[in-house]
């Protein structure tokens, strides 16, 4: 891409995105967010603030929730990235997505991809979170529409779906 040719060398970065191996030629300081959106055409991660404050760009990097606007692409060399596009299972909604849909956890939807990944990360670490733990787990994801109440309900519903009890049924 001519647009990206600047003073310094391009770097070749190999990473895995949603279980697919990808190689990008890019300036090393390009933000992961921009590589996802511009080079890989995965536009699910959004830029809300560009300073790690709103969480709309959140993705999973080696299983950890990160703000992709604050990750220089070179630091993803060899990393595994999961974006909102990689959450659904066999084209079916992930239970978290289903719960956000049913509980009214998404209104305008712009924070939703980041919010769902933050929830995914939270439930990986704490499968049955308390309300306080949910508030902490999602406090880096700003939502201006919901007042968060329906988002908490969505997380609680997703956690309930994932209880061992329902798995055995």
């Amino acid at each position: 891409m001519q647009a990206d040719r600047g003073k310094f060398e391009m770097t070749r970065v190999a990473l895995t995105v949603n279980d697919e191996k990808r190689i990008v030629e890019t300036p090393p300081m390009k933000r992961l967010l921009d590589v996802l959106r511009e080079d890989l055409h995965l536009t699910g991660a959004k830029e809300g603030c560009g300073e790690g404050e709103c969480g709309a760009c959140a993705v999973l990097m080696n299983g950890d929730l990160v703000n992709s606007c604050l990750v220089p692409i070179l630091q993803t060399q060899g990393a595994e990235i999961i974006t909102i596009e990689g959450i659904a299972i066999d084209k079916k909604l992930h239970p978290i997505q289903q719960c956000f849909l049913e509980q009214g956890g998404a209104q305008c939807g712009i924070c939703t991809p980041g919010m769902i990944l933050a929830t995914y990360h939270l439930l990986e670490n704490i499968p049955q979170p308390t309300l306080l733990q949910i508030q902490e787990g999602l406090n880096g994801n700003l939502c201006r529409c919901t007042g968060y109440m329906r988002i908490f309900n969505s997380v609680l519903a997703a956690a309930a779906k994932a209880t061992p009890q329902s798995e055995t049924q």
């Binding site: 959106r37 536009t43 699910g44 991660a45 959004k46 830029e47 974006t83 909102i84 596009e85 959450i87 659904a88 909604l93 997505q97 289903q98 956000f100 849909l101 049913e102 009214g104 998404a106 939807g109 712009i110 939703t112 991809p113 769902i116």
Partner: peptide, 21 residues
């Protein structure tokens, strides 16, 4: 009643196309 939001599926899948997308 509270049926599913019309464009909700695209939103939770990250497929909804906002202008910068």
């Amino acid at each position: 009643s509270s049926p599913i939001r019309k464009e909700g599926r695209d939103k939770v899948l990250g497929r909804a196309q906002y202008i910068d997308d």
